[in-house]
Amino acid sequence: MTLQIEKSAPRTEKTTQQNRGKVRLREHLMGWLFVGPFGIVFLALLIAPLAYALYLSLFQKKLIGGTSFVFLDNYVKAFTDPSFLSGSWFVIRFSLVSIPLQIIIALAMALILDAVTNAFTRFSRLMIFLPYAIPTVIGAVMWGFLYSKNFGPLTDIFALFGGTAPNFLSSNLIFIGLVNIVTWQWAGYYMIILYAALQGIDPALYEAARMDGAGKWQVALRIKIPLIAPALILILVFSLIGTLQFFNEPQILRSLAAGAIGPDYTPNMYAYQQAFSLANFNYGSAISFALGGVVFIGVYAFLFFTRKRRSFL
């Protein structure tokens, strides 16, 4: 556009440059005016806390001798602390099991809802999405009831077949109990994102594939899934970030399954315990910062990796 103006309306070099300078300055100002308010919040509530966490994590508070600078000692302590390590190992195992499960279920539901449209599937779509509107805390409370021996239905259902109900609040089965809660909570949300992506595909592609003799399964596997790969990667990232900072559900179930879930069950719970139960804010900050750093690097590496891989899908 600028080129056209210069061609059609010849003017002296000087005024153009002056005008352009004015326009540029105004654009800078207006840009910052719009971005500025968020920028202030961003600095005050993201950058400042992160910097402060880093600062705090470099100190140690002792009963005798007060607070002293210890450099990376807190991090050395964290990465050799059995509580932190077992918590980290738990969230990694939990991610490896629960994320693929959630995505497979979400993908299956999205493909069905995309292929079959009638009143029942429209109703199903809403009902499957419903748990997303439920706070994770309330979801955990609800499932805690269902798992409970006192008022859950499991005892009755298994008694019908003469069996004993599995106790999902016991230390053997709590892992499965938590996987189930998380899947129930999030699969519907991921389904909606995938469904929206599927609806955005040009139907002419399916027609062309059918002409070439592709069946329904082949269309789903070879056309639909590759085309929604960006949406799949997006929900993978969401679920990875969410799962690594796992806190609400185990914290709520703790009161029902005290023997199965310790106060250091996940890194976030451990940081919370250190900071708020033991007033050990320096070490709590170090755990928070280490967790944040690991998640950031992990997700960044994942995005980098999939960016290369995506073209092969």
Partner: peptide, 24 residues
């Protein structure tokens, strides 16, 4: 640069900010 910062912030887990924000 600032947009890159915002994109980077997407990957910072919100709960990692709770304890330092509390201290502030």
């Amino acid at each position: 640069f600032s947009f890159a910062l915002v994109l980077g912030a997407l990957m910072v887990p919100a709960t990692a900010l709770v304890i330092p924000t509390f201290m502030m």
